[in-house]
Structure formats: C-alpha cells, structure tokens
Nucleic acid binder design. Structure first.
Length: 547
RNA sequence: GCCCCGGUAGCUCAACCGGACAGAGCAUCGGCCUUCUAAGCCGAGGGUUACAGGUUCGAGUCCUGUCCGGGGUACCA
C-alpha cells in the first residue's frame, strides 16, 4: 500500500468514526505532519467540525481518537495535539514493507495508470523560425518536456508538438532582412528594413546563399527563396539546440497547413454563421465583446492577411478534432489575453474545451552583470539557449528552469549562472545518486553481500527512519504533479531526500563487519537510489554513477 | 484607465485543497576527512512574508484597498 493509499485508508476509517459520532464525513484532509513531534500524518477534522459538533476542538479530537480504529500494521499510534489535530504515526512494519515495494517496483515506483489508454497532446516552445532559441524559450522547453514526462509517467501516450507560423509578417521581414544582407555582401547598397532582424545569424544565412547561388538572386524581388532558406537554416539550428537539452518533438505543425486545407475558411464561415464574425472597415472581426472582452478582435486585416489569432483558432479546432483525451498548451505570459478568445471560438464552433489546459508561465528577465537586458529577437539582444547549454551543461539548465514556480518571474543573471554552475543544486542531487552507486560498487567488489533476505527491522537509527519516511512520499508527489502539472514539487522533494541521504551517509556506514546491518542498509540505499533515479528521470536530468 | 501574474532572510528561491515554530542554497562566521566520494556533514547569525484592513479556532496562502515589478489591453507575434 503506497502512502497515497494509506491516506485514503485513514480517511475511510475517520469517515466511519465521524458517522458513528453523527458528524458529516465529507472532505476529510490527511496531510503530512510538519514536525516529528506531531507524528507522520495528521488530520484537522476536529478543528473543522468543532463548531458544528458544538464541542471544543480538543475534546472532539479526543472523542474521535477514542472511537477510531486503525489497522495496526500501518499505524503505530494515534495522538491528539494542541489546538485539536489528530496525529498518526506510521508503523515500522509499514516502512519496512515500503522498502520491499520500492525494490520490487524499481523504475515503476511512482508511476500510476491514471492515463492508461489515453492520448495527450502537449504544445510548447512554438517559436517562429525567425532566430535562434533564447534563454526565454528555454524555460518553456524544459517546462513542456517535464510536463510531458509527468503525463507519460502516469500512462499517457504523449505527443510533444511544436506549432509554428511561417506565413505572416514576421517571416516576410525575415526574408527581407536576409535579402538585404545578401545584397550587401554583393556590394550592393541595401539595408535591413524597418523592424527587420539584425542578428548576426542573418548575415551567416546570407553568406550561405552567396556561396550557393552566387549573385544569381540579385534581381530576385520575390522573397520566397530568402525566406525559405532562412527558415530551413534556423529550424535546423533550433532542433539542434533542443536536442542538446534532450528534447525531441514528435510533431511540427505548420500554420500554412490550415490555409491549404481550408480550415481557416471554415472557421471564419462558422463564426459568421453564428453571427460572431462581421465585416467592418475592410477587416473581418470576431465579436469577442460577447465573451466579456472590452473590444472585438480583428481576424483578417484590411490587407487580407489574417492576424495570428485566426490560424491559432484553426489549429486548435484541428487539435481537438484529432481526438486527444488531454490537450495542454504552454504559453508565455504574453498570451494570457489571447487564449480565451481561442477557447471561446472553439466552443462556439461546437468543439469541447473541457479537456484543454493552458499553462501560462511568466517571463525570464535577463541580466548580465546585474544589468537588465531587454530581450528581443529582432534587435538581437538575447542570449541564446545554445550558448547557455554550452556554458553550463544541459543538466544545470534543466534544473535551473524547473526549480522555479512557473508563475513567478525568473531573474536570470547569465554571469551569475555561469559562475555558480559549479555549485548548482543539481549536483547535490546527482552526488547523492553517485555516492549510492559507489557504495553498491564497493559492496560488490569487497563482499558477497546481497539485498536478498535483508532484515529491515535493523534500520533503527534516526537518520535511517527519517530517510525511509521521506522517500515513501514519492508516489504522492508524482500524483500531485499530474494534478497540478507543476514539476516543482518533485524538484523540492528530491532535494530534501538528497539532504536526508547525505546526513545518513555521514552518520551510518553501510558496508561493515556486521553483515545483517550491512544487508539492511544496502536495501535501504538501493531503494533511495531508485527514488532519486526515478525523480531525475522525470526531470530529464542525467543520473551519474560517479562524479 | 481596465485585466492577468508576482512581491517571503543581503541575493536566488521553497512552503502539499488555509494548519502547528515560515524553510533551503549562495554570501558571512565557527567546527568535521587513517574508515563506502568533503560536489558532503554539523553549528551560528540573518524575517513585522511589500503595506493597511477584513474573514476564522488558525492567514505567506482566502477577500478588499494601496504601493512596487512584469505581461496584456494593436488591422505586431
């Protein structure tokens, strides 16, 4: 029985007791105790129900405790404390069984079948191919990948999807910028257009084109070749960067598809039929005021060119039509105001949106030596993700981005990140894993000991008990991660587990002359290694066997 | 102006549907390597959780207002 099941079981026992006391048994909360003096698990039911019961919380808690029957193989003691908490102590039998359970399950420990047979789509990064990925994109890349890992852990069949737009104004500007550099290289008088792209990579692309085509494109006024070459080069660069942090997309969806297959037209027609799209001032508008917005929104500009919102809607109708059980969109804070329009349109057009979850993360603000830098792809004032990975390594980058809450702004000081990469917390986790591997190696090389038939009752030291009590929380954390889609809890947990391991390591020697204790500790240490490894796998961070 | 997210130790961040004394790392100071890895361990100092009210047994967490930072409010993406 995992800790999750144990809590459910305690809830049920509490519910029975409450019923016998003629009290409502809904919403009973069992939480992990903050401090050992309050047992391992605790419930606040008595505090919550005191008013209704017309009795002081402490007295009610005591009454509940007297009536409560808990299975002895899981709970060794039930106590009542201060304001009226009911505290449960986990039995040693239960802890011991958990070690065996972890060892048996191995890499399956922490998994569930919540998403078995279900398909999920996670859309993220989705940066247009106008320049290299920046540190800002890195946050979303890592977040999306870890969210996908969490879904996979619970049995979902996950598709990682990258959506890009190569038909709009930005891509046209990109083409023009490349053409300008191309002409420049040929000694012509040309300059990057207003609002165009100024990064040095544009010149690199232009150089490639000179090598490939010579001056044969000099008279070329059609931007297509410049645009297409730029897109190709930049995309291969983007994919290479993503590969460096261990991220591979299953699908790249192109906006163009939705023009070609008529989805765009169908969306506009559909909205017109519902009376939610209309013509004004030469443009086509979406009546977003119907959904509580201050203003209506333009779908197709006077120039005949759609705004990005229209293909976005079209893309999402197609996403829903593909029949996924769970759709997750990950956007930066700049989309906060636009995705509700997409969802409104979907509903109007008869597509369900209940299975769509939108995760919005705040931006990364970049600092260099304490100075704030405004990131802009166009102005080329950005630090590329690739540069960062090359400087500090993929594991540090991944950890750096997921140890923070996605709703908080992330202050990223590049100078500091490079300087501090040597003491990055990720090494602390990996070091715990490597240390365990080393112990196991040592045991294998110098003894005949195995973990078979180990007697885990011998694990009595406080640092051993603390370690066991902490590691068994893992399944609960992976479950929470699935519900919240926030990877951070796993990061925090792993850090705490590593701390308890390091403490254990300094206090207890694993391989000693006492074979029984050695076997028991080898079992303990192996189970800790399993939990650390499983957690790091979710985060996409490597699990070094030596450091 | 209006809408959304945030404000926690000097710095970067935690804190499980509201719970018990707000925790780590870095930085500062002091200890610990003849024994499986010192990328480690132990200890000290450091806080009116931006501010003011409110809700209740209990608020960093929920509500209202103010201040500060970021984002949105484009026929830009």
């Amino acid at each position: 029985m995992s800790i999750v099941d144990l809590k459910v079981s305690l809830q049920q026992h509490l519910a029975k007791t409450l019923q016998s006391l003629e009290l409502p048994a809904e919403s009973i909360i069992i939480e992990t105790s903050r401090s050992a003096q309050f047992g391992d698990l605790s419930s606040n039911v008595a505090l919550v129900l005191a008013r209704e019961a017309g009795r002081p919380p402490l007295e009610l808690a005591e009454a509940i405790r007297e009536q409560l029957i808990v299975p002895e193989d899981t709970c060794s003691a039930v106590t009542v404390s201060k304001p009226g908490f009911i505290n449960f102590s986990i039995s040693e039998t239960y802890l011991r069984n958990q070690i065996s359970e972890i060892l048996t399950k191995g890499e399956d420990y922490g998994k569930s079948e919540a998403g078995e047979g279900k398909r999920a789509l996670v859309e993220f990064v989705s940066a247009n191919p106008t320049g290299p990925l920046t540190v800002g994109h890195g946050r979303q890349a890592v977040l999306g990948d870890v969210v996908s890992n969490i879904l996979e852990l619970h049995g979902y069949d996950v598709t990682r999807e990258y959506y890009f737009n190569d038909a709009g104004r930005q891509m046209r500007l990109l083409g023009e910028s490349v053409r300008a550099r191309y002409l420049e290289l040929l000694g012509e008088d040309a300059s990057v257009p207003e609002g165009g792209y100024e990064g040095s990579y544009i010149r690199d692309i232009a150089e490639q084109m000179v090598q490939l085509h010579g001056d044969s494109l000099k008279q070329q006024d059609d931007m297509t070749i410049f645009k297409q070459t730029a897109e190709k080069v930049i995309f291969s660069d983007i994919k290479a960067t993503l590969a460096k942090i261990g991220l591979e997309f299953d699908n790249f969806m192109n906006e163009k598809t939705f023009y070609e297959d008529g989805t765009i037209d169908r969306v506009v027609e559909g909205l017109r039929e519902k009376g939610l799209a209309y013509d004004k001032d030469g443009a086509v508008w979406f009546k977003t005021t119907q959904f509580g917005k201050d203003q209506d929104t333009v779908l197709i500009k006077g120039t005949g060119e759609p705004t990005y919102r229209l293909p976005d809607i079209a893309y999402h109708t197609q996403k829903v039509a593909r029949g996924y059980d769970y759709i997750i969109d990950i956007f930066g804070a700049d989309h906060k105001d636009t995705y509700p329009d997409v969802l409104s349109a979907l509903e109007v057009l008869g597509y369900g949106t209940d299975h769509i979850t939108v995760l919005i993360h705040q931006f990364v603000s970049l600092k260099e030596s304490g100075q704030k830098v405004k990131m802009s792809t166009r102005k080329a004032t950005f630090v590329t993700l690739e540069e960062l990975i090359d400087r500090v390594g993929a594991d540090v980058v991944r950890y750096f981005f997921i140890m923070r809450n996605m709703h908080s702004h992330l202050n990223f000081d590049l100078t500091l990140a490079i300087k501090e990469s040597d003491e990055n917390p990720v090494y602390y986790l990996q070091y715990a894993h490597a240390r365990i591997c080393n112990i196991l190696k040592h045991a294998e090389e110098t003894t005949e000991l195995t973990i078979d038939g180990a007697n885990h009752t011998l694990l009595q030291e406080p640092s051993e008990i603390a370690l066991m009590k902490d590691m068994i929380r893992f399944p609960e954390l992976t479950e929470t991660a699935l519900n919240t889609l926030e990877p951070q809890g796993i990061t925090t947990f792993l850090y705490g587990l590593a701390t308890l391991f390091h403490r254990f390591y300094t206090e207890c020697r694993v391989v000693t002359d006492d074979e029984d204790i050695s076997k028991a500790r080898l079992g303990l240490v192996t189970s800790v290694k399993t939990v650390l490894a499983n957690g790091l796998t979710i985060l996409g961070i490597s699990r070094p066997e030596r450091m």
